[in-house]
Design a binder for these strands. Structure first.
Lengths: 281, 281
DNA sequence: TTTAGTTGTCTTATAAAGAATACAGATTTG
DNA sequence: CAAATCTGTATTCTTTATAAGACAACTAAA
């Protein structure tokens, strides 16, 4: 499965150092080993060490002080925007952040066999395919490829897509979403996604595939989402519920959800049911 | 953020083709463009195309038939083991699969500032650090780095770790886990993880960071998990609950959980509440 | 001030990746 | 069978990555 086609040594070292910094194995503001030391430690030349450090510096993870050393930067080591498992961005309003959507492409295509099966449709059925990029504070954080059956897609315009969440559009047109499955994984950035998300090809991406079904069991939306993990991640709070042998973990979101059903108006944004990671002041 | 230190051209092409195949843009059993055609299409030499295809072939994604062409393989395009959002592996028993654990390292270390903060402990406190690899059918699928406060870690042995889930060990020693937070993201494989998971350095990994708290609010476990996305992914079923303006998505697991609280004995393994992706017969 | 250690920059040499081309053997099609 | 097309393999050349070393400029500490 593995071996052959080695990534460049500089890339390897870059990934290694990056990992150590992100995991906190090297403290913030601490000095890294000197370039000659790193070169000897990893059995590479100083040029290679230098390339790795260049990359880290351009990522804003380290700061180089000539004559003194290179140090781990405080700022950039942390904290993407988080979403709960229902894919709802949290703490956005209160942080005064603004999101936007860019429509990359929009077309009608024939369903591939795989796509038809996932949506439980007839193979070859026409689908509306749209590619969008979501932005936060002007910076892209997600790359979304959506497939919707043609007849359903007709109920809204191309312009609607660039301004309104797709699920809202679907429900507005009378459809009733009943169930959805989501699968979360990881993949490497290909050329298109890398370009749209302002990343290097081969960067790590968080993926989510969601299929939404109406009550009849037919799929009404297929979403393939790619997220920049440094700007977006999934967050879930779990509570230990039940007693004795039947104790198990329950997502706290579910609790909050049932609380909110009889509470349409006041949205409790002061809740903090579980400790959050925070950056130091 | 991007540019400089280009990955190799062969790697780029590999990722591009891989992406197209995984997304179903190229049908299963279909023939890929010929090597000269791919070379011209992407403005690279045939040697480079060849390297990319070699990698795809070793991944089992394509099959090369001399004189005929290269074709997309049916088998390997799909389906890792799935876990629900409580991190419980599903469909394992019924599939007759066996899991195992390999203990990689075991030591006591000083808490880094970042780790201490996440666990809400005093900085510098002693922690038990263990690194484990979980296997399914003899193949590694997750790389787990766990930190537990020293006094708690004393309650079980090194051998226990290799055989029993950590959370069970903790509760067995009288601790009461009350809350947990989980953050799911993605990262690139570093040298250690790549080696343990039998992957190339720079491969995409699914990450989960979990912190478990007891009722006093102090952390009792910090877990950093790295998963091979081709062998493991998170799955969640959502249901549209509530009415009118208060409709929202609720994880179906929560429903199942509350059903099971009064149902200790019979574990309903026949449930299939939501359509699953499946491979063709 | 001196000294040791650091990053920044350059040179030269070797190793590896990629480009361009040619040709043998297998497969399909006319 | 013959022609066209494909993969497998080899050769040669160019470009890029890496190695090894030298030296200047800067910093901090003795």
């Amino acid at each position: 499965m593995s071996s052959t086609m080695e990534p460049l040594k500089a890339r390897r070292l870059y990934l290694l150092l990056r990992e150590q910094i992100l995991r906190g194995e090297v403290a913030v503001d601490a000095r890294l080993p000197s370039e000659p030391a790193l070169a000897q430690e990893h059995s590479v030349s100083r040029v290679t060490v230098r390339r790795a450090l260049d990359k880290l510096a351009s990522d804003g993870m380290i700061e180089r002080r000539p004559g003194s050393g290179t140090f781990v930067s405080a700022g950039k080591t942390s904290m993407p925007v988080v979403a709960d498992l229902s894919n709802v961005l949290t703490h956005l309003v209160e942080m005064g952040r603004k999101t936007g959507v860019r429509l990359i492409s929009f077309a009608y295509v024939n369903a591939t066999p795989a796509m038809a099966e996932e949506l439980r449709l007839d193979p070859g059925e026409r689908l509306q395919r749209s590619v969008r990029v979501r932005l936060i504070d002007g910076q892209p954080f997600s790359y979304l490829v959506t497939h919707v059956p043609e007849r359903i897609g007709m109920s809204y315009s191309e312009a609607d897509l660039a301004s309104t969440p797709l699920l809202e559009l679907l429900e507005r047109s009378g459809l009733v979403a009943e169930r959805a499955t989501q699968v979360v994984g990881a993949t490497l950035a290909g050329p298109e996604a890398a370009d749209a998300l302002d990343l290097d090809i081969g960067a790590a991406l968080l993926t989510m595939t969601r299929v939404v079904f109406e009550s009849s069991g037919r799929g009404i939306e297929h979403l393939q989402a790619l997220y920049r993990p440094d700007r977006y991640s999934f967050h879930m709070d779990l509570e230990r519920t039940g007693s004795d042998g039947a104790r198990r973990w329950t997502p706290a979101d579910a609790v909050r959800a049932s609380e909110q059903i009889n509470d349409t108006k006041k949205n409790n944004r002061t809740k903090r049911p579980t400790p959050q990671r925070r950056t130091k002041p």
